[in-house]
Design a binder for these strands. Structure first.
Lengths: 341, 341
DNA sequence: TGTGTTCTCGTAAACGTTTACGGAAAAACG
DNA sequence: CGTTTTTCCGTAAACGTTTACGAGAACACA
């Protein structure tokens, strides 16, 4: 049985109120008394029970992260998120906050799994990933008045919550710029068909850059597919069979790129030789693929840390003296040139 | 402000005790009363506050998973764990249990990060991964009398806790058997130098199979390295430069295999042609590497589910009428034959 | 009708904290 | 020395539940 504040008080012949104040660094407690309390706490190995504390303070000191598996390949497993989670957790830990992980129903972008957390008040705030352009989870949290932040932007909920996103638009532009500079004019774009917001952003950048270079946007070179290898595998040939074959492809998702490259291989087309390939979000898979895929790399761990900060800055209980702030940031990606383009 | 059980009771002109009993399915409440309570709860959108419940019941209804990052490459991110976590969470959710993720200090296999969880009673039990042969975290939890289960076996703590492991020993044997059947006699083994338990198990199986085939174990063909690409990259040449060059290598870790293959490539040695390569734990990287690496694949998502069950079976509060049981299981791996051997 | 049993519910304590309030003692001040 | 201020601490309520206990009403039974 763990020791409670009552044990500590009894042991010191002192009231629990004083003990609590001493431990929480309140001003109205004698310096010597505080010393005695701290020592006794160490000796009796006392730590405050979080349930009691939560109940009294109305805050659980834990943040929920909702990981939304995409439909499809179970084995793949979104390696993207581990470094992000590492950063998120590290930053939260510095504020003595715990991280709870809530998995969504695979393929279903619904708030159901969130409901329990929110309604039973198991967490103080939520971090959402894989945001869609129209996101029911954001609508739900907004309506419920529950604090949250998102990794990725969305059109839902307005600008009322902190969000940190990757600059997919710029990445799309830069990819086109790079390819054009290397002499390409017929550049295809392949992205997920789900209405994940980054798919739109990417395409915006892609179109914008093409126009800037005076290249007409050919709808036949733009294709949507299922957000996994199978999708890339299925959709890539469609683009390759357009009347005027592209000389370059930009994939908006690493898994789709891998599937796409498989399709290319079966058509006897070699990335890096017969066609240029660029991937928008780098993962370890891009590095080890043969040929190694040129890709845009995010700095996931720092993003995790930063989003934690941004979330906390929006919470009254954690914001500094300046008050709460809704921070929204968009981070650039770093191009990692490899062999595929 | 969320509604409490008091609001509900007041609304129904009934005592909170009765409300609680009705909601919790106790027998001593009139059927009609229960109906009214349930309806009102739905109407007022009432859910019990978990903090209050935790405090009263002395249980948080959340399980902590400690993810222990290996030292080294941040970007790599252990894709292994996402499917496992998915299964673990899914099974826990069926018992209305939450999952909390605790990250260890990268490279430090210490119980420090666990201390906070245990001492402040933020979770009811812990799931440990990346178990070492001698594991301080296990010692700590045992001594503290805190319930836990492990993914992977260890020599610490005896048989007092549930554990689920992959049969690395058998995988080591099978890998050797397969290679011998294909005519190989000089087979190298490369494993992490950390005292992760699976490294020992793998080597046991490797040695056992070699002896069974009447092949002498050559210490020059066994090498330990840092558990990441760099380690594999550094240690593989050492093995290849032994006086009687191996014709096959078994890697005990996917990251090390990738680094090793890079070293081989630089030596002009092509896996699948000049040397056979088998990897003990498959990840998506093995599949996409060129040549695709033959590997042993675990079923991670079912393992996550199963370990959750096993953990719960060991807890008095969740065990069935048969009482608590300490279950230990070792699961086989499935060989996925690809191009590298 | 009296007695025992069953059903149903209200009362109140308990879980472990934090904190508003007030009061006694000590210190400061004139 | 009397008064005011400050310092320090104890008291008790509150957070939202669950549950042991007991009591009244209804019922069964002889």
């Amino acid at each position: 049985m763990a020791s409670s504040i009552h044990d500590l008080a009894r042991h010191l012949n002192i009231s629990i109120g004083t003990v609590s104040r001493a431990l929480n660094g309140r001003a109205d407690v004698n310096a010597e008394t505080r010393q005695r309390v701290l020592e006794a706490a160490r000796k009796l190995n006392y730590s405050p029970n979080q349930s009691g504390r939560s109940l009294r303070q109305g805050a659980t000191r834990s943040i929920a992260f909702m990981l939304q598996p995409h439909p499809g390949d179970q084995q793949y497993g979104e390696p993207f998120f581990i470094p992000f989670l590492t950063g998120l957790q590290a930053q939260l830990a510095e504020h003595d906050l715990d991280l709870m992980v809530v998995m969504g129903e695979p393929g279903q972008y619904q708030p159901e799994r969130l409901r329990r957390v929110v309604e039973t008040r198991r967490a103080d705030a939520v971090v959402l990933a894989n945001t869609r352009r129209e996101d029911d989870r954001i609508d739900y949290l907004s309506k419920a008045g529950f604090p949250f932040a998102t990794l990725g932007r969305s059109q839902s909920g307005g600008d009322t919550y902190p969000s940190l996103d990757i600059d997919f638009e710029r990445a799309g532009e830069e990819a086109v710029d790079r390819l054009v500079a290397r002499g390409h004019r017929r550049i295809a774009a392949i992205r997920p068909s789900l209405d994940l917001n980054f798919g739109y952003l990417f395409l915006d950048g892609y179109r914008k850059a093409l126009r800037r270079h005076g290249i007409e946007v050919d709808p036949g070179l733009i294709a949507d597919g299922f957000i996994n290898e199978t999708g890339g595998y299925q959709v890539t040939p469609r683009v390759m069979l357009s009347k005027d074959r592209p000389t370059a492809i930009i994939f908006n998702n690493d898994a789709m790129a891998l599937g796409g490259c498989k399709a290319l291989a079966e058509m006897g087309i070699r990335p890096g030789h017969d066609i240029a390939v660029i991937v928008i979000v780098d993962t370890p898979l891009c590095r080890y693929f043969s040929p190694a895929l040129t890709a845009f790399r995010p700095s996931l761990e720092p993003m995790g840390r930063r989003l934690a900060e941004m979330l906390l800055a929006s919470l009254p209980a954690f914001a500094g003296p300046e008050g709460t702030r809704i921070i929204r940031e968009v981070w650039p990606l770093e191009l990692v040139a490899r062999e595929s383009d």
